[in-house]
């Protein structure tokens, strides 16, 4: 129907998503939300890959996106396991509680 979306727009979107993810990780105190914003960053990277793939009309971008998804899933699962243990030990998910090692 209307003109195809130009590659710059998609990259811009991916960039914005990426920066949102970074901001999320820095601002949020709760570990779950930090993991969540890291997920956003990973998806942004995936989006960039898909866009690049479409630019060169090669499937590689999408194959890469699938890999990114699997990796993100694995990483989040391990992350949640760790979060469970943190909650058992510290009774709170606030990242600033975990500051014993310093100097």
């Amino acid at each position: 129907m209307n003109a195809p979306i130009s590659i710059e727009m998609v990259m811009l979107l991916a960039g914005i998503l990426f920066i949102l993810g970074i901001a999320g990780v820095i601002i949020r105190k709760n570990i779950i939300f930090m993991l969540l914003s890291v997920e956003i960053m990973l998806n942004a990277a995936g989006l960039a890959f898909v866009a690049a793939g479409s630019r060169w009309a090669q499937p590689d971008g999408q194959v890469m996106f699938i890999f990114i998804l699997t990796m993100a899933a694995a990483e989040v699962s391990v992350g949640l396991a760790l979060i469970l243990r943190i909650y058992h030990q510290h009774k709170s998910l606030d990242i600033d509680k975990l500051k014993e090692m310093k100097g």
């Binding site: 991916a14 990426f18 993810g21 970074i22 990780v25 570990i31 930090m34 993991l35 890291v38 960053m41 990973l42 942004a44 990277a45 995936g46 960039a48 890959f49 866009a51 690049a52 793939g53 060169w56 590689d60 971008g61 890469m64 990114i68 990796m71 990483e75 391990v78 992350g79 760790l82 979060i83 943190i86 990242i95 975990l98």
Partner: peptide, 22 residues
């Protein structure tokens, strides 16, 4: 947890970089 968050964070950077080069 520190290693996890930071590793994921930096691999996101890595991926975005790869996408740009690609």
């Amino acid at each position: 947890i520190k290693y996890l968050v930071l590793a994921a964070f930096s691999s996101a950077f890595l991926l975005f970089g790869m996408a740009l080069i690609y």
